[in-house]
Deep mutational scan, measured.
Amino acid sequence: NTKMVRFKKGDSVGLRLAGGNDVGIFVAGIQEGTSAEQEGLQEGDQILKVNTQDFRGLVREDAVLYLLEIPKGEMVTILAQSRADVYRDILACGR
C-alpha cells in the first residue's frame, strides 16, 4: 500500500510532520490547496523517502529542515505508505 506522489514545490511543501526516530515520519496535517493535497497525501501517511533522502530513522527536525531546503519550483517526489493505525498510536503516546 505504498504510493508515490510527485509535484513542483510551491512556497512550501504543505505538510505538517509528526513522529521521528524509531517510529518514522508521518503526515500530521496537509495545507489545503497544496500540490501535496491534490496528489493524494493524507494525514497518517508515513513518509518513507523524499527525492533521494530516506526518511526512515530521521528525527522530525531533520525531516522538516530537508523539506524546507528544497528550493521553490523544484520537483518533489515522495514515497509514502498509509499507516493510519500506527499514526493513531503515535498520537496517543504524544509523540
Results as ranks from 00 to 15, higher is better:
A28D: 13
V59E: 15
G19C: 00
C93H: 13
Q81I: 10
F26N: 06
S12F: 11
G20F: 06
L79C: 09
A18N: 08
T52Q: 13
Y66R: 07
A18K: 07
I90E: 11
I30S: 01
L17P: 06
D62V: 07
E74K: 08
S82C: 06
Q81H: 04
F55Y: 10
Q53Y: 02
K8M: 13
V59R: 15
T34W: 08
L91R: 11
L67I: 00
T34K: 01
Q31V: 13
L91W: 10
L58C: 06
G44E: 08
G73R: 01
Y66E: 06
M75H: 07
I47W: 00
G33C: 06
M75A: 04
V64W: 14
T2G: 01
F55Q: 03
G44A: 01
V5C: 07
G57N: 13
Y87L: 05
E39G: 15
K9E: 07
I90F: 10
L68M: 14
E74T: 12
V13S: 08
N21V: 14
V86K: 11
G20Y: 04
R16A: 10
D22Q: 10
Q53M: 13
E61C: 06
D62I: 04
E43W: 09
D62Q: 13
V86S: 12
I90P: 12
V23R: 10
T2K: 13
L65S: 15
E32G: 12
G24Q: 05
G19V: 01
I78H: 02
L41K: 00
D54I: 01
D54V: 05
G33R: 02
E69M: 05
R6C: 12
V50I: 08
V13K: 05
L58Q: 02
Y66A: 09
R60K: 14
L41W: 03
E37G: 10
A28T: 12
R6K: 13
V27Y: 01
R6W: 07
G33N: 10
A92W: 11
D62Y: 00
I78M: 08
F26S: 02
A28E: 11
I25G: 03
E43T: 12
Q53L: 09
E43A: 11
R60A: 13
G40K: 06
V23F: 07
V76F: 03
Q31C: 14
G24H: 10
M75R: 05
E74S: 13
R60L: 15
N1M: 10
I78N: 11
S12I: 08
T52S: 14
G40L: 05
V23C: 09
